[in-house]
Nucleic acid binder design. Structure first.
Lengths: 247, 247
DNA sequence: CCTGAAAACTAACATAGGTTAGCCCGACCG
DNA sequence: CGGTCGGGCTAACCTATGTTAGTTTTCAGG
């Protein structure tokens, strides 16, 4: 499945649903994107504390927001194609975390100068950009909930369900699952557990016929059980994705 | 310690630091606030899913953002005086969580109509409001980190250190601690643990001479040990509070 | 001053998950 | 074609935390 013919913003998740971008507005964002880069090896795209004068749009692949501490690495957010990864740096100026690529990625850059100019004459677009950072915050809250509420198996199930949903918004999911290059160690970093325990959980999901995670792909075998285990309710994504309609 | 003579926005944390509000801009927000209400008994101020046409400024006391599920209650965020509690509802229109009062509180309301009008002619102020929601997201990320990284004692230490810091920004902390009406059960809801285990942790902090939490007050006994235990580094608050200068 | 309810606190036991140690397998490489 | 390295996987053991079932303290209201 290749999306190379799509312009970048066709995958721009966050304007969907409640706040729809017009074709003209999509084009305006499209025009902002410069300096498209590709990375195949793991790469630290942005570093904590650096002062930034541009923001990053994820065009293809996955990136993680990570915080390293005493040799350990913690993933505090994951992004799918179409996400503005660090739009918050537009107002905060520096990041409180690193941004690293996972698997092969393609990213575009938008300078803050050009963004600022655009936002001044496009108030609706400015609102949608704000909206997009608020959606990040809503996803953060759901992660907090899942970490407070669920044990490791539920956390993993929730993560899979969320990503399946978000990828579906932007056309990168299929009815049986999705391509997913995270290692078990990285999944553990995102679920707040250890690789050893995460492996136990992966095996359990497989044995119970809920989902299979292997060879760079997630295959969902029992969607209802996955949702139940992860207590997943997509309300917090404020979207209207295709999967919802499909079922 | 009474702050009754201060106007509300003197406690408006989020404009501090990088993005300073002018006196005139403070006055503009001040003028927006209407319908000041007080609650002494526990009260659900806002309910999940409701469509909102106004946002809420916390003037005095504490409120929590909570998600209830199968009889359990999870706190995904806490607010201190000066915080806009649900500014995100301005763009998202509905909330993905409830907002409840903890202890006696005083809140003000700002209608979205008036906010919208103000933001159109005050782009800098609009930027500061955006900034304030981004700070919420940064705090969310830190909570995710703390939940992934720390065990229950560290989580509690982190929570105390963060709140001490945020309260200091707005003049509600003192050098030995702060007034704090959360019950142990509520602290447990915010730390992702059970009341029983939280009680063990409270006792441990007391026995080790780190902090004492009792009778509606937190007394910090060993600030360095508290920070160490909670791996607390206030960078993510993007502030320049007084405590930093004091030491 | 008494009373009832909420909060704080404790003990005893069960288990999820962390830790340490290591094996196995396929991919890439010289 | 053998070596090595990262990722997947497993076992044994131990601790932090959850669970169940209470007792004690605090404090507001009568």
């Amino acid at each position: 499945m290749s999306h190379d013919s799509f312009p970048y913003t066709h995958r721009y998740l966050k304007g969907r649903g409640r706040e729809q971008l017009s074709t003209r507005e999509c084009g305006l964002i499209e025009d902002l994107v410069q300096d498209v880069e590709r990375y195949t090896a793991p790469h630290t795209i942005l570093e904590r504390g650096h002062i930034l004068d541009r923001s990053t749009l994820l065009i293809e692949g996955f990136v993680a927001r990570v915080i390293r501490e005493e040799g350990k690495r913690h993933i505090v957010a994951l992004h799918v194609p179409g996400d503005f990864v660090d739009l918050h740096a537009f107002a905060l100026k520096r990041l409180d975390h690193d941004v690293v690529s996972i698997g092969p990625v393609q990213i575009g850059h938008v300078t803050h100068d050009r963004l600022e100019a655009l936002m001044e004459c496009e108030p609706h677009l400015a609102r949608v950009l704000w909206y997009s950072t608020l959606l990040d915050a809503a996803i953060h809250r759901e992660w907090i909930l899942k970490l407070e509420q669920l044990s490791a198996d539920g956390r993993l199930a929730h993560l899979i369900a969320e990503l399946w949903h978000r990828l579906d918004f932007v056309g990168w999911a299929d009815p049986s699952g999705f391509a997913f290059p995270l290692t078990q160690a990285e999944l553990a970093d995102a679920c707040g557990t250890t690789p050893i325990h995460l492996n136990r959980v992966v095996r359990k999901l497989r044995e119970q016929g809920i989902a299979d995670i292997s060879r760079g792909r997630v295959t969902v075998l029992d969607r209802a059980a996955l949702r139940e285990l992860g207590r997943f309710d997509p309300d917090y994504l404020y979207g209207n994705g295709v999967l919802e309609i499909r079922e």
